[in-house]
Structures are given as C-alpha cells and as structure tokens.
C-alpha cells in the first residue's frame, strides 16, 4: 500500500517533449517518480516495463492515437489508472477518454495543483481500496 512516504510512479506520455520533461521535473520536485515517453508505442512499452501507478496520457501523439493507446491499455492493464491530458479547447475528447475507462482528464495548460490533487486522489484512493 502506498502511504504518504511512497513515491507514486507517474508515466507522462506526450509528444511535446519540453512539456513532458518540464512537467516531470516539477513532479519530481514534489516527490513523484516520473518516466517520460513521446509516442503511443513507447507508452505501451513503458507501461509494461515500468509498471507505473498512473499514466498522464496526451490524446494526440505520433503513430498511435491516444484513444487507441487508452483502449489497448484498458485491455492489457485493466487496473492501470489513466488521466487524459488534452490540448483540445472542449471537454469532448476528455469525456470520450473517460468513456473508454480513463479515471479523469485535465486540460492544457495544466494547473499543477489540480493535477497533483487528481493523481493523489486516484492513486491513493485505489491503493486504499485494494
């Protein structure tokens, strides 16, 4: 079980390299453990290898569409928690992602405090439930 001293393992999947790496740096400063990937295929590989607690998934990446990645993740790792990160101006894509099993979604530019709140709620909540 994760307690407050355990690091939550976050996989950040976004093709905007500088966004993903800077967000990772900021989460690391807050005691999260992060891995960054920049494509759909890399996301699938990293989930298998790193076994993150949660994936922050951009919906628009090269090779595989984010919703395709989400569907594959749901099939192969049904317990994995996913937060959709979207640059779309509407909630539609986030809503579609949640229908496919994402736990939540957040719009870009990201409100870091809100994101951390969502990560903590989802990961700590799910660990307490298990």
């Amino acid at each position: 079980m994760i307690d407050d001293n355990d690091k939550i393992k976050v996989l950040i999947a976004d093709d905007e390299v500088e966004f993903a790496s800077t967000l990772a740096t900021r989460l690391n400063l807050r005691n999260f453990s992060t891995t960054v990937v920049n494509s759909g295929q890399q996301t699938l590989s990293a989930v298998a290898k790193e076994q993150p607690d949660i994936v922050l998934l951009d919906l628009k990446m090269p090779d595989l569409d984010g919703l395709e990645v989400l569907a594959m993740l749901r099939e192969e790792h049904p317990e994995l928690k996913v937060i959709i990160i979207t640059g779309h101006g509407s909630f539609e894509m986030g809503r579609e992602g949640m229908e496919l099993g994402a736990s939540d979604y957040i719009m870009k530019p990201v409100d870091l405090n809100l994101l951390i709140e969502k990560i903590s709620d989802i990961c700590l909540g799910s660990k307490k439930d298990s």
Binding site: E16, F19, G87, G89, P109
Partner: peptide, 15 residues
C-alpha cells in the same frame, strides 16, 4: 491545439 501545447510548455517553464 498547437497553441494550447505552446501555452502548456510556457506554463510549465514559468512554474
């Protein structure tokens, strides 16, 4: 969409 991505990077950098 691309402008949102740019704003997201600037936002993280400022943060």
């Amino acid at each position: 969409h691309e402008i949102m991505n740019i704003l997201a990077i600037i936002n993280e950098s400022a943060g």
